[in-house]
Amino acid sequence: MTTKLGYAVALVLLLIAPFFLYPVLLMKFLCFALFACAFNLILGFGGLLSFGHAAFFGGAAYITGHAIKVWGLPTELGLLAGAAAAGIMGLAAGMLAIRRQGIYFAMITLALAQMAYFLFISAPFTGGENGLQGVPRGTLLGMVDLQDNMAMYYFTLAIFLAAFWLIARTVHSPFGQVLRAIRDNEPRAVSLGYDVDRYKLQAFVLSATLAGLAGALKTVVFQLASLTDAHWHMSGEVVLMTLLGGVGTIAGPAVGAGIIVALQNLLASGPLSAWVPVVLGVIFVICVLSFRRGVIGELRAFIQKSF
């Protein structure tokens, strides 16, 4: 009940937000919120810490940019191409990494992401240090001009909501039940006849695809795909957002992304602009030390305790 109310309020806020706040900033938030929610699918619900999700985010950003700018694909198809590419990368990386757990899984995903990063630096289609600039936003179904920030905002919001719904559904699906069982007690899940690696792989590919969709959307919003998107900093940032908002909660990562994006934006123009990483680092330490379940996780525990 409380949850439904919370979602209704959030939806209303998202619908009216662009009348009060700069739409591009809001779209940046939506892209990162989607990225973090997708990441949470594998960390929070699959129990696997990937340290290479920037490769999917950045890889999709490049593919979408290239598809729209060079191949001249319509925006919608460009986004799909980016997400599909990230899914294929996720499948390849997952098949190599999924048999390992804990720190080894994190290390393999990090190593693969670093390889992808160096590929993006040297490949001609990415524009190297300059990135892929001037990607046209195009039109929606050939009718609505997405160059208009308001139109682009509602398009982004629609994609975010659809993807968010899909993630929530995945968590509460027959597949999600098996995933929970595997996270809770993997040997037991095996003894009940589940090929756990195949379930983890599917979760990983879903997570990579949706992370890719976030990166693809980011390219269209900013009309730019750059090395920043694929850098390991990005992999770290998404971990931070997820933990801050609440790992293993459905809405937590989006809240975490909101906090990080808002802080970066607020601090960037103030006297602390050079200190953003330090401030974020301090927040992260406080989060891990004192509210480990994250904002939404603590809130949920509080509500459960009080009512």
Binding site: R169, T170, S173, P174, G176, V178, Y199
Partner: peptide, 22 residues
């Protein structure tokens, strides 16, 4: 108990289906 029964349904990879189907 249900997670043990559900393999028989053959929908255990279906992430788009509601868990109400269980």
């Amino acid at each position: 108990v249900r997670v043990s029964l559900q393999r028989e349904l053959g929908t255990s990879f279906h992430f788009w289906r509601s868990e109400k189907s269980l």
